[in-house]
């Protein structure tokens, strides 16, 4: 069996969803740490942004992230569509099983939360990466801090971001632990730890990202 064919089975496809998803979680961790520099002051944040954009590896990294995202979306959508096709007739009555089931609002809305996050991502990139260029006092350094403060001076934008971060938290709550299960890394001894870490990481990432617009709106 070729590797390509092996990765197109239902189990192989979920390997890819898991690997791309965990890679994107890694990006989110780095992104959050970078964003939190905003709390250290505008100069630190602008210097970080400048250092990032000046790195010659940033363009390949961005294309890499785009590739990961597209593969994640393609394989996840295919998984959802296969599931729909596998049950052409719905039940008249349906109950959640409860007990040991890990089914949650988070797990049942993965496709919906994913689509909302995609819309958010486009808006987010358009607002900041391709938003207005404000020069800072330092020659050639973009004043990203000013742009962030302008955007988050609007309560509507702050609410939009906080809600979007809530949705990303929901997506990650199921996504992180599910990825470990898909990769076969969820052994009995580690199950509760992986579930807890997945939930904890989802809360930290969503809470950390949501903190920034609220902080900027209230204190900057």
């Amino acid at each position: 069996m070729t590797s390509l064919k092996a990765l197109s089975t239902s189990v192989g496809s979920k390997f890819l969803v898991a690997l791309t998803g965990l890679s994107l979680v890694g990006f989110l961790i780095a992104h959050l740490i970078g964003n939190l520099l905003l709390l250290a002051g505008p100069d630190t944040f602008n210097a970080y942004g400048h250092a990032l954009i000046s790195n010659p590896l940033v363009i390949p990294a961005e294309f890499g992230l785009l590739g990961l995202l597209l593969l994640h979306i393609y394989k996840a959508l295919r998984h959802v569509l296969l599931g729909r096709r596998a049950r052409p007739h719905r039940y008249t009555m349906r109950q959640w099983a409860g007990g040991p089931s890990r089914k949650s609002w988070s797990s049942t809305t993965m496709a919906v939360s994913g689509v909302i996050l995609l819309i958010f991502l486009v808006t987010h990139i358009a607002t900041f990466k391709f938003g207005p260029y404000y020069p800072s006092a330092d020659e050639g350094v973009r004043d990203l801090s000013r742009l962030v403060q302008e955007v988050f001076s609007s309560p509507g934008y702050v609410v939009f971001y906080v809600v979007a971060m809530g949705i990303i938290g929901m997506h990650l709550r199921h996504g992180i632990s599910s990825a470990f299960q898909s990769l076969g890394l969820m052994t009995p001894g580690w199950t509760s730890a992986v579930l807890s870490v997945g939930l904890g990481l989802a809360v930290i990432l969503a809470g950390g990202f949501a903190l920034i617009p609220v902080w900027v709106y209230l204190f900057l």
Binding site: S10, V11, R85, A97, S177, P188
Partner: peptide
């Protein structure tokens, strides 16, 4: 269809077959 790792299967299984079997299958694959 494919597995979404929700575990409804384990909860409704009359023999209590655990979700850890699916993790083992993924590992074996």
């Amino acid at each position: 269809g494919g597995c979404s790792n929700e575990g409804e299967c384990e909860a409704v299984c009359p023999k209590g077959i655990s979700l850890k079997n699916i993790a083992t299958m993924n590992r074996e694959y």
